[in-house]
């Protein structure tokens, strides 16, 4: 009870600080935090579905790209919030298509399918844009740093609250049971197909909304920028880095990752992807439970 109160108070203070930040923080801090929020959304949504069920989705960049492209096509024509909504809906339906046709695939096959889906979307769009519409790139509406900041803060907050609510509900437990033994969970009355597809769709729609908001930072996009497969892998890496067993793991992972990225891209711009590759291999090989694993072990030794 005490612990719960303390953490609630901590969250409240943090939130209060974050809401007021634009009034005293530097523009740079807003940009950095917006980036962190983006990676938090991408990672937490990935863990929301893939964490408990054990399915490896490599389609995050499809949903992110769908959001980015939605912004590129309609951001000058309709109000911002409507664009966000449309981006979220398109990602929802993309996830629905993937879910209906492929969630019966097991293990690595689902991963390959989702990977192929992103590439299919990318190459179809490339062909469509060059041959049918004759555009090679599109300009996106630019928003102020402050608007992007508040929208990303809201989105990250909603994503985290929703995930926390889901994890504590009976559906969170049911998702976990799917990862443990899918056949058994069907036989105790869980509509596994519906639950999997719906969770996948909802988590993906957050990614789509995130894509719309972040697209305004690029000002110019083309299919290759929008559907960069990197955005499918980075969330998984952040989840592994932070540790996917607790909700704060992916959040920590996203924060550490963004911060490292900021430092490295300015200090060692030519080597930073090399460094990330090495870090990734290192974390997977030596820290399979991520940062959360280290913290847990520390806590345990302290208690003992």
């Amino acid at each position: 009870m005490n612990f719960k109160l303390i953490s609630l108070a901590l969250i409240g203070v943090t939130l209060f600080f974050l809401v007021l930040l634009p009034f005293f923080g530097s523009p740079y801090s807003l940009v950095l935090l917006s980036n962190i929020f983006m990676y938090v959304v991408l990672t937490v949504t990935w863990v929301m579905f893939c964490g408990p069920t054990g399915y490896i989705s490599l389609a995050t960049s499809a949903f992110f790209g769908a959001g980015i492209y939605t912004a590129a096509v309609i951001s000058f024509k309709v109000p911002l919030l409507l664009t966000v909504l449309v981006g979220a809906l398109i990602s929802f339906f993309l996830a629905l298509i993937i879910g209906i046709v492929s969630l019966r695939l097991k293990g690595i096959y689902f991963a390959m399918f989702t990977f192929g889906f992103v590439e299919l979307l990318l190459h179809f769009l490339l062909w469509y844009e060059t041959n049918i519409t004759g555009t090679t790139g599109r300009v996106v509406l630019t928003l102020s740093n402050q608007t992007v900041y508040y929208m990303m803060l809201a989105l990250a907050f909603v994503t985290i609250v929703f995930t926390q609510y889901l994890n504590n509900s009976r559906y969170g437990m049911a998702l976990k049971s799917i990862g443990e033994n899918e056949m058994a969970s069907e036989h105790i009355g869980i509509d596994t197909a519906k639950l999997k597809i719906l969770t996948y769709c909802v988590s993906s729609s957050f990614v789509g909304a995130c894509g719309v908001v972040m697209a305004t930072r690029w000002t110019y996009v083309d299919p290759k920028i929008a559907f960069n497969p990197l955005y499918s892998f980075i969330p998984i890496f952040m989840a592994i880095l932070g540790g996917a067993r607790k909700l704060y793991g992916p959040i920590l992972g996203a924060i550490v990752f963004t911060y490292l990225q900021e430092i490295l891209t300015t200090r060692i711009p030519y080597y930073y992807m090399l460094f990330f590759g090495l870090l990734m291999v290192f974390v997977i090989t030596f820290l399979p439970e991520g940062i959360v694993g280290i913290i847990d072990r520390r806590l345990k030794t302290k208690i003992n």
Partner: peptide, 9 residues
């Protein structure tokens, strides 16, 4: 027949 409990619950 082959026990299918949820092992990590």
């Amino acid at each position: 027949q082959d026990v299918k409990v949820f092992p990590n619950m």
